[in-house]
Amino acid sequence: MEQDIKNGVDTAYLIERSGARGDRHLHIRTSEQPAWTIKAGIGRDGKGANRLDALNIYANGKILRPTPRFMARLMGLPDFYELPESMAIAVTLLGNGVACGVATALLTSLLPYMQRRRNQL
């Protein structure tokens, strides 16, 4: 990432900062790599503190905070899917969910077994 920034390459990065400090580095993904799991705890830490800076986007020379809509898109939800107005509740909802592509793949792979089981009953 640092090399791309120095060379002026216009690449977007997803940056997870949780756990990053002195001896630990940031976790970075390019736009071509899969995103991490959206964690329910990103929006809050259980003590009332805002933890939304644990996940950032670097694009066009700026560090941006992802919106709940951005996180929903990472999970494959369509734009018409309504999210709660509260950012903390929306992020918790997304963090407790399963990405659409993962759910589809799991159910598709289980369907033949379920049909066979039904036919055995």
Rank of each mutant, 00 (worst) to 15 (best):
M1K: 10
M1H: 12
E2G: 04
Q3Y: 02
D4A: 10
N7H: 02
T11D: 11
S18C: 03
G19H: 06
G19W: 04
A20D: 09
R21M: 00
G22N: 05
G22A: 09
R24I: 01
R29V: 07
Q33V: 05
P34Y: 05
P34T: 09
A35K: 11
A35W: 05
W36L: 06
T37I: 11
I38D: 02
I38W: 09
K39D: 15
A40K: 13
I42A: 10
G43T: 04
R44K: 13
A49P: 00
A49L: 14
N50S: 13
R51Q: 14
D53W: 05
Y58W: 07
N60D: 12
N60W: 03
G61H: 11
I63D: 14
I63L: 12
R65Q: 09
P66S: 08
P66R: 00
P68F: 03
P68E: 11
F70K: 01
M71N: 05
M75F: 03
G76C: 02
P78D: 15
D79H: 02
F80V: 08
S86A: 06
I89Q: 14
I89M: 08
I89N: 12
V91S: 04
V91I: 15
L93K: 07
L93M: 09
G95T: 03
N96V: 00
G101E: 15
G101L: 08
A103W: 07
L107F: 09
T108Q: 15
T108D: 15
T108N: 15
L110Q: 14
P112N: 12
M114F: 06
Q115D: 15
R117D: 12
R118H: 08
N119F: 04
Q120I: 01
Q120N: 06
L121E: 14
